[in-house]
Design a binder for these strands. Structure first.
Lengths: 201, 201
DNA sequence: GTCTATATTCTGATAGAC
DNA sequence: GTCTATCAGAATATAGAC
């Protein structure tokens, strides 16, 4: 209670970020004005500058926070043999991205609107995420659990494939999310084993 | 010879489209001004309106032309048994998209900047392309050449995976384009056959 | 912390001379 | 077909009152 007339820094800040996230995802960073964000939040445009030095920083922090959260989550996945880690990764990636469609969209679509320094920082975070999957693949090849021509290419292929779920899947449609996870895991699983079955000759 | 001072409709028009394609891909439709396009072409902003009624139509026609060209090309792929058609599709998709990175980028990223009617038309073209791959999968399942849980899901997964090549592959790097085509075909091939090998029991 | 007011610049699009 | 000039409005960001 005690909602005074002029002191909302703790609540307005998150509302600014939420409005920016939604608007950037729907219309694109360049197409969204600070006035639109302010209107969504319910303040005047000038007030936004209490929460961000400028529009560019607002975009950058949304992307960085998303990538950091993604990395923390993937680092929390359980250890185990490569095949189990791969299955966890596949199911995790689909679920995590499904829960944050706006942030995912922005993280992939607005890279070109980042200033060079900001771009480098986001790209470094993305590379760290890709490296997680790549090392699952490398470990699996080393352990002779996987048969793969190129761990790097496979990592890029699988991440693109999994992220693509967000472009077509809608809850309440023909398939449940867990059915989609099952289908994708089936495809990825087959992709990493020999077409002839188990690996030992 | 005979380059008169004020008559370039046949050459300026394509230059306008080429400049718009490049600028939209690099900075995004909303972030690019008609004046920037004009500067690239070497004319004044007003002159652009001899070639397009407005900026929106310019974007729409770039996307439509790309999708039509894609559909014509995929329709020209040779017939044959499902496994051969699938291999042709995989190699074709990678090569075709590699040759047109700007158009591909725009076709995937600027959908949200299309007016509703234009959006519907582009979406219909995209669905027709996805249906080509989906029917290869359906035919393969019917012919018992493929083992797949869901032809629709597999089509979306494979298209996303293949299109993703454009985000990381650069000619002159570690891999040649044809090596990439080989790797992706290997992965897709394994994805559609039983993990236990050939399908007959 | 939010407001109003404003500076400065840029936007898409049009009119009319040549 | 291209130009210059311009309209009408919107943009980011800042200054200063409250």
């Amino acid at each position: 209670m005690a909602r005074t007339a002029g002191s909302h820094s703790d609540v307005t800040g998150p509302r600014v970020r939420a409005a920016a996230l939604s608007l950037f995802a729907r219309h694109g960073y360049a197409a969204v004005s600070m006035r639109q964000i302010a209107r969504d939040v319910g303040v005047q445009a000038g007030a936004l500058y209490n929460y961000t030095p400028d529009k560019q920083t607002l975009l950058f922090e949304l992307m960085r926070d998303h990538m950091v959260e993604l990395l923390e989550a993937v680092d929390g996945l359980p250890a185990g043999p490569p095949m189990e880690r791969l299955e966890h990764f596949v199911r995790f990636h689909i679920a995590f991205h499904h829960d944050r469609p706006d942030a995912v969209f922005i993280a992939y679509m607005e890279l070109r609107n980042l200033d060079p320094d900001n771009f480098s920082e986001i790209e470094a975070l993305r590379s760290r995420y890709e490296a997680v999957l790549e090392s699952i693949f490398s470990d699996g090849v080393t352990a002779q659990a996987f048969e793969l021509r190129d761990a790097k290419v496979a990592a890029m292929a699988v991440i693109a494939m999994l992220t693509g779920v967000n472009t077509w899947f809608r809850a309440g449609g023909r398939l449940s999310l867990s059915a989609v996870q099952d289908h994708y895991w089936d495809m990825v699983h087959k992709m990493v084993v020999s077409a002839g079955g188990s690996i030992q000759p």
